[in-house]
Protein backbone atom coordinates (compact mmCIF):
# COMPACT_ATOMS: atom_id res chain seq x y z
CA UNK A 1 0.00 0.00 0.00
CA UNK A 2 1.36 3.39 -0.92
CA UNK A 3 2.09 5.52 2.12
CA UNK A 4 0.20 8.42 0.65
CA UNK A 5 -3.02 6.39 0.60
CA UNK A 6 -2.90 5.73 4.36
CA UNK A 7 -4.99 8.24 6.24
CA UNK A 8 -3.52 9.97 9.27
CA UNK A 9 -5.77 8.11 11.73
CA UNK A 10 -4.81 4.77 10.13
CA UNK A 11 -1.16 5.70 10.33
CA UNK A 12 -1.56 6.59 13.97
CA UNK A 13 -3.30 3.27 14.71
CA UNK A 14 -0.55 1.46 12.81
CA UNK A 15 2.12 3.23 14.85
CA UNK A 16 0.38 2.43 18.13
CA UNK A 17 0.05 -1.21 17.13
CA UNK A 18 3.76 -1.30 16.25
CA UNK A 19 4.63 0.25 19.62
CA UNK A 20 2.61 -2.42 21.40
CA UNK A 21 4.40 -5.18 19.51
CA UNK A 22 7.79 -3.72 20.26
CA UNK A 23 6.82 -3.23 23.89
CA UNK A 24 5.78 -6.87 24.13
CA UNK A 25 9.34 -7.87 23.15
CA UNK A 26 10.72 -6.38 26.36
CA UNK A 27 9.34 -9.14 28.52
CA UNK A 28 11.85 -8.67 31.29
CA UNK A 29 10.50 -5.27 32.28
CA UNK A 30 8.15 -4.84 35.16
CA UNK A 31 4.56 -4.64 34.03
CA UNK A 32 3.50 -1.31 35.46
CA UNK A 33 -0.18 -2.29 35.37
CA UNK A 34 0.53 -4.90 38.03
CA UNK A 35 2.38 -2.56 40.38
CA UNK A 36 0.41 -0.32 42.71
CA UNK A 37 0.83 3.41 42.00
CA UNK A 38 2.66 5.95 44.16
CA UNK A 39 -0.19 7.36 46.21
CA UNK A 40 0.20 11.09 46.88
CA UNK A 41 -2.83 11.47 49.20
CA UNK A 42 -3.66 14.68 47.39
CA UNK A 43 -7.21 14.26 46.08
CA UNK A 44 -6.62 16.36 42.95
CA UNK A 45 -3.73 14.16 41.85
CA UNK A 46 -4.86 10.70 42.97
CA UNK A 47 -8.34 11.09 41.45
CA UNK A 48 -6.91 11.95 38.04
CA UNK A 49 -4.22 9.27 38.03
CA UNK A 50 -6.00 6.05 39.07
CA UNK A 51 -4.78 6.31 42.63
CA UNK A 52 -1.40 7.99 42.26
CA UNK A 53 1.59 8.40 40.01
CA UNK A 54 2.11 5.17 38.07
CA UNK A 55 5.29 3.34 39.03
CA UNK A 56 8.03 2.54 36.50
CA UNK A 57 6.78 5.34 34.28
CA UNK A 58 7.46 8.98 33.59
CA UNK A 59 4.77 11.49 34.56
CA UNK A 60 4.70 15.19 33.79
CA UNK A 61 3.33 17.97 35.98
CA UNK A 62 2.96 21.25 34.14
CA UNK A 63 2.99 24.49 36.07
CA UNK A 64 2.45 27.14 33.42
CA UNK A 65 1.29 29.93 35.74
CA UNK A 66 3.18 31.13 38.80
CA UNK A 67 2.24 30.04 42.34
CA UNK A 68 -0.16 27.34 41.20
CA UNK A 69 1.03 24.77 43.72
CA UNK A 70 3.99 23.08 42.03
CA UNK A 71 6.26 23.59 45.02
CA UNK A 72 3.55 22.50 47.43
CA UNK A 73 3.20 19.24 45.49
CA UNK A 74 6.95 18.70 45.15
CA UNK A 75 7.66 19.24 48.85
CA UNK A 76 4.70 17.05 49.79
CA UNK A 77 6.11 14.21 47.65
CA UNK A 78 9.36 14.43 49.63
CA UNK A 79 7.37 13.94 52.83
CA UNK A 80 5.52 10.97 51.32
CA UNK A 81 8.76 9.18 50.51
CA UNK A 82 9.96 9.71 54.05
CA UNK A 83 6.68 8.28 55.37
CA UNK A 84 7.12 5.27 53.08
CA UNK A 85 10.70 4.80 54.34
CA UNK A 86 12.32 5.20 50.96
CA UNK A 87 14.79 7.46 49.18
CA UNK A 88 13.97 10.30 46.80
CA UNK A 89 16.25 12.00 44.30
CA UNK A 90 15.62 15.57 43.19
CA UNK A 91 17.24 16.76 39.98
CA UNK A 92 17.06 20.51 40.47
CA UNK A 93 17.30 21.95 36.95
CA UNK A 94 17.96 25.50 38.06
CA UNK A 95 19.17 25.14 41.67
CA UNK A 96 15.97 26.48 43.18
CA UNK A 97 15.19 23.97 45.95
CA UNK A 98 15.06 25.53 49.43
CA UNK A 99 16.06 23.06 52.19
CA UNK A 100 14.84 25.50 54.82
CA UNK A 101 11.30 25.25 53.42
CA UNK A 102 11.05 21.54 54.20
CA UNK A 103 8.77 20.83 57.15
CA UNK A 104 10.83 18.18 58.87
CA UNK A 105 14.59 17.91 59.14
CA UNK A 106 14.27 14.12 59.00
CA UNK A 107 12.82 14.40 55.48
CA UNK A 108 16.11 15.83 54.22
CA UNK A 109 17.94 12.66 55.26
CA UNK A 110 15.94 10.74 52.66
CA UNK A 111 16.67 13.26 49.93
CA UNK A 112 19.49 13.20 47.38
CA UNK A 113 19.59 16.66 45.84
CA UNK A 114 21.51 17.46 42.67
CA UNK A 115 21.98 21.15 41.95
CA UNK A 116 22.27 21.45 38.19
CA UNK A 117 23.35 24.54 36.33
CA UNK A 118 22.06 23.67 32.86
CA UNK A 119 19.29 21.68 31.24
CA UNK A 120 21.86 19.35 29.68
CA UNK A 121 23.30 18.54 33.11
CA UNK A 122 19.80 17.90 34.44
CA UNK A 123 18.96 15.41 31.68
CA UNK A 124 22.25 13.53 32.04
CA UNK A 125 21.89 13.34 35.82
CA UNK A 126 18.29 12.13 35.44
CA UNK A 127 19.50 9.30 33.17
CA UNK A 128 22.06 8.21 35.79
CA UNK A 129 19.59 8.31 38.65
CA UNK A 130 16.85 6.50 36.70
CA UNK A 131 19.25 3.60 36.23
CA UNK A 132 20.50 3.56 39.82
CA UNK A 133 17.68 1.46 41.26
CA UNK A 134 17.86 2.77 44.82
CA UNK A 135 15.25 5.52 44.66
CA UNK A 136 11.52 4.97 44.99
CA UNK A 137 10.88 8.47 43.58
CA UNK A 138 12.82 10.54 41.07
CA UNK A 139 11.77 14.18 40.77
CA UNK A 140 13.03 16.35 37.92
CA UNK A 141 12.36 20.06 38.36
CA UNK A 142 12.75 21.98 35.12
CA UNK A 143 10.25 24.75 35.81
CA UNK A 144 12.82 27.54 35.87
CA UNK A 145 14.99 26.31 33.01
CA UNK A 146 15.13 28.27 29.79
CA UNK A 147 12.11 27.31 27.68
CA UNK A 148 13.91 27.42 24.34
CA UNK A 149 16.57 25.04 25.64
CA UNK A 150 13.90 22.72 27.03
CA UNK A 151 12.06 22.63 23.71
CA UNK A 152 15.25 21.61 21.94
CA UNK A 153 15.58 18.39 23.97
CA UNK A 154 15.06 15.65 21.37
CA UNK A 155 12.06 13.38 21.95
CA UNK A 156 14.25 10.27 21.95
CA UNK A 157 16.05 11.53 25.09
CA UNK A 158 12.76 11.45 26.95
CA UNK A 159 11.94 8.01 25.57
CA UNK A 160 15.34 6.80 26.70
CA UNK A 161 14.62 8.14 30.17
CA UNK A 162 11.23 6.48 30.13
CA UNK A 163 12.84 3.15 29.22
CA UNK A 164 15.37 3.50 32.04
CA UNK A 165 12.55 4.21 34.51
CA UNK A 166 10.51 1.32 33.14
CA UNK A 167 13.29 -1.15 33.97
CA UNK A 168 13.44 0.05 37.56
CA UNK A 169 11.01 0.16 40.47
CA UNK A 170 11.14 3.94 40.48
CA UNK A 171 8.36 6.50 40.02
CA UNK A 172 9.54 9.47 37.97
CA UNK A 173 7.78 12.84 38.01
CA UNK A 174 9.04 15.76 35.95
CA UNK A 175 7.90 19.31 36.69
CA UNK A 176 7.89 21.48 33.58
CA UNK A 177 6.74 24.99 32.65
CA UNK A 178 4.98 23.73 29.54
CA UNK A 179 4.00 20.40 27.96
CA UNK A 180 7.35 19.06 26.83
CA UNK A 181 7.64 15.32 27.36
CA UNK A 182 6.23 13.11 24.61
CA UNK A 183 7.14 9.96 26.58
CA UNK A 184 5.08 10.90 29.65
CA UNK A 185 2.35 8.39 30.39
CA UNK A 186 0.52 10.73 32.77
CA UNK A 187 0.32 14.45 32.18
CA UNK A 188 -1.38 16.88 34.58
CA UNK A 189 -1.47 20.66 34.49
CA UNK A 190 -1.78 22.46 37.81
CA UNK A 191 -4.59 24.99 37.67
CA UNK A 192 -4.78 26.16 41.29
CA UNK A 193 -4.39 29.82 42.05
CA UNK A 194 -3.16 30.94 45.43
CA UNK A 195 -3.43 34.41 46.91
CA UNK A 196 -1.20 36.00 49.54
CA UNK A 197 -3.54 34.74 52.27
CA UNK A 198 -2.31 31.22 51.44
CA UNK A 199 0.93 32.04 53.24
CA UNK A 200 -1.01 31.86 56.51
CA UNK A 201 -2.92 28.66 55.74
CA UNK A 202 -2.22 25.20 57.01
CA UNK A 203 -0.51 22.81 54.56
CA UNK A 204 -3.33 20.28 54.77
CA UNK A 205 -5.86 22.90 53.63
CA UNK A 206 -3.55 24.09 50.90
CA UNK A 207 -3.04 20.56 49.55
CA UNK A 208 -6.81 20.00 49.52
CA UNK A 209 -7.12 23.15 47.42
CA UNK A 210 -4.64 21.93 44.82
CA UNK A 211 -6.36 21.35 41.52
CA UNK A 212 -5.19 19.91 38.24
CA UNK A 213 -6.47 18.93 34.82
CA UNK A 214 -5.33 15.97 32.73
CA UNK A 215 -3.73 16.62 29.35
CA UNK A 216 -3.66 14.18 26.46
CA UNK A 217 -0.96 13.42 23.90
CA UNK A 218 -2.42 15.94 21.51
CA UNK A 219 -1.45 18.71 23.92
CA UNK A 220 2.21 18.24 23.06
CA UNK A 221 3.36 21.35 21.28
CA UNK A 222 5.71 20.50 18.48
CA UNK A 223 8.28 23.17 18.07
CA UNK A 224 10.53 22.88 15.07
Amino acid sequence: MNDSTIHFSDRKALLQSLCREIGACFASEIDSDLVSPFKTEIPAIDSLSSGGFPKNTLSEIIESSPSSGGNLLLYHLLERVKQQRGYVALVDGNDSFAPDSVESSETLRHLYWVRCRTTKEAIRVSDLLAGDGNFSLLLIDLRRNDLNTLRRIPGNQWYRLQRAVQKSTCTCVAFTPQVLIPAAKLRLRLVSSFALSALDEDHTHLRDRLSAEPLSDSAIERIG
Binding site: G69, N71, A98, V102, S104, S105, E106, R143, F194, E201
Partner: peptide
Protein backbone atom coordinates in the same frame (compact mmCIF):
# COMPACT_ATOMS: atom_id res chain seq x y z
CA UNK B 1 25.49 19.35 51.73
CA UNK B 2 26.39 16.04 53.33
CA UNK B 3 26.90 12.59 51.91
CA UNK B 4 23.59 10.73 51.65
CA UNK B 5 23.21 8.13 54.40
CA UNK B 6 22.74 4.80 52.70
CA UNK B 7 21.32 3.48 55.95
CA UNK B 8 19.13 5.72 58.07
CA UNK B 9 18.69 4.59 61.62
CA UNK B 10 15.36 5.48 63.11
CA UNK B 11 15.86 8.23 65.60
CA UNK B 12 13.14 8.05 68.19
CA UNK B 13 13.97 11.53 69.44
CA UNK B 14 11.42 14.13 68.33
CA UNK B 15 12.27 15.61 64.92
CA UNK B 16 12.62 19.33 64.50
CA UNK B 17 9.52 20.48 62.71
CA UNK B 18 8.70 23.79 61.17
CA UNK B 19 5.14 24.94 61.54
CA UNK B 20 3.33 23.52 58.51
CA UNK B 21 1.93 26.84 57.41
CA UNK B 22 2.09 28.57 54.07
CA UNK B 23 3.41 27.73 50.63
CA UNK B 24 7.01 26.56 50.24
CA UNK B 25 9.49 28.94 48.71
CA UNK B 26 11.27 28.27 45.43
CA UNK B 27 14.55 30.15 45.58
CA UNK B 28 16.16 32.34 42.97
CA UNK B 29 19.89 31.85 43.37
Amino acid sequence: IEKLDTEIQTDFEPESHKPSIGLPLERIR
